[in-house]
Amino acid sequence: MKINGVFIEDTFAEAFPMKATRLIITAHNAVWANHAANALTGFATSVIACGCEAAIERQLKRSETPDGRPGVAVLLFAMSNKELTKQLQNRVGQCVLTSPTSACYAGIETGDPLPLGKTLRYFGDGYQISKKLGAKRYWRVPVMDGEFVCEETTRVTKAVGGGNFLILAETQAQALDASERAITAMRKVREVIMPFPGGVVRSGSKVGSKYKTLPASTNHRYCPTLKGVVDSALPESVGAVLEIVIDGLTSEAIDEATRVGIRAACTRGRKGGIVAISAGNYGGNLGPFHFKLRQILK
């Protein structure tokens, strides 16, 4: 299979079950909503060492937010409810509560509740105010610029983490250009995030290492500088590989993001230096979700 002359390998991405939630962060204007969201999702590229994977899902219009202010939807993924709860407390407490004019609401209506304002309210030192409107409870915590409004709980849902595809290009610049095109297209898909910097990761890993303490190490078969040294998986013409990792609330959303991402990455085609599209997996033994590239692109 080829798209614009770019070879699509007959392989699949292997993904894992995760727990996820969506938060809606609002502020006086979109700039400050993004400041809070960017801080919240900082250092959240991989559960390997960050505790969670998080990123901005999309910008929200005033009409889409609970308080009618500009907002941002953020998705957070973790391996367990316990870890997600911990990450929510730390990140919302340190990054959203602290951000001027911000407010924080649940962005998912179904699923088990996870504490949000329920624990953060104690920052109010007894001056916090509870407001129950219909079935929802909000906390108004007094802060120096007025009040921090936070919904009492958010909801957790089953999700999928680790969807991915690899862009194999002749040069680093060409791989980066294709990645940027892919990310631009994929950010229009709802219910997914690409948690790495700019949505792109250059350090794809394999399980294990020659060093016993490391759980993961560089995927040497995809490192172009090691061609001739190791059993390389790369064709002769490939000089750079970049990976796009996708976390989604549903496998269908990851399917869609993969489809639009690969098509966008192949825009410049083989003549533009894009050699092939591949995907990372562990032989199908570790994750129950398999995203077969050729099936998705049919």
Binding site: D67, R69, G146
Partner: peptide, 16 residues
């Protein structure tokens, strides 16, 4: 005098 983020929540609830 304040701009309270809570008020739009209350207004939306009443309007519902």
């Amino acid at each position: 005098e304040f701009e309270l983020a809570f008020l739009p929540l209350l207004i939306n609830h009443v309007a519902s």
